[in-house]
């Protein structure tokens, strides 16, 4: 079992500009390849981090217009999981108040959006969200 030691860590500060989520996905790919994660699992990490960044860009209302991303390779002596933290200093939200989107309702709804958290939870092995009026952190992990 992992003792949650951080074997390697990389941090990025992303300005809220179009497609900056791709920079985060590229870093995630490099970190995941370093720990020899399978390619399909790497793709899932990429997709999840894109969603987490886009959520922060779209909804955080952070006055500094930045998103802070930390990639940590966690393990005992060998890499066991990639833990990614996406943090903003925005206005926060109540995760328990977010309604789970359903395709049959979205097809009839004016807005088809609101899928980010569902996709992240579906693609990652562990997801934890902490949010308050001073910001939001999403910590998501994928095992090797």
């Amino acid at each position: 079992m992992a003792n949650d030691a951080v074997l390697r860590e990389v941090s990025l500060t992303l300005p809220m500009l179009p497609d900056m989520e791709i920079a985060a996905s590229k870093t995630a790919t490099a970190m995941a390849e370093l720990m020899e994660m399978g390619s399909d699992r790497i793709d899932e990490v990429r997709m999840a981090i894109v969603e987490a960044c886009v959520n922060a860009f779209e909804h955080s209302q952070a006055s500094d217009r930045k998103v802070y991303v930390t990639f940590a390779v966690i393990g005992d002596t060998a890499p066991e999981k990639l833990q990614i933290t996406i943090r903003d200093s925005g206005v926060g939200f109540k995760p328990e108040a977010v309604e789970e989107p359903r395709i049959e309702e979205k097809l009839r709804a004016k807005s088809k959006r609101g899928w980010g958290l569902k996709i992240i939870k579906g693609l990652m092995d562990e997801v934890a969200i902490e949010s308050s009026s001073t910001g939001t952190s999403i910590v998501m992990s994928k095992y090797r």
């Binding site: 989520e21 791709i22 996905s25 793709d43 990429r46 997709m47 894109v50 969603e51 886009v54 779209e58 395709i103 979205k106 097809l107 807005s111 088809k112 959006r113 899928w115 980010g116 996709i119």
Partner: peptide
């Protein structure tokens, strides 16, 4: 190789 949920919402 990659999509985001805003793009997919347009596909919906």
């Amino acid at each position: 190789k990659i999509v985001n949920s805003i793009g997919i919402s347009i596909l919906i």
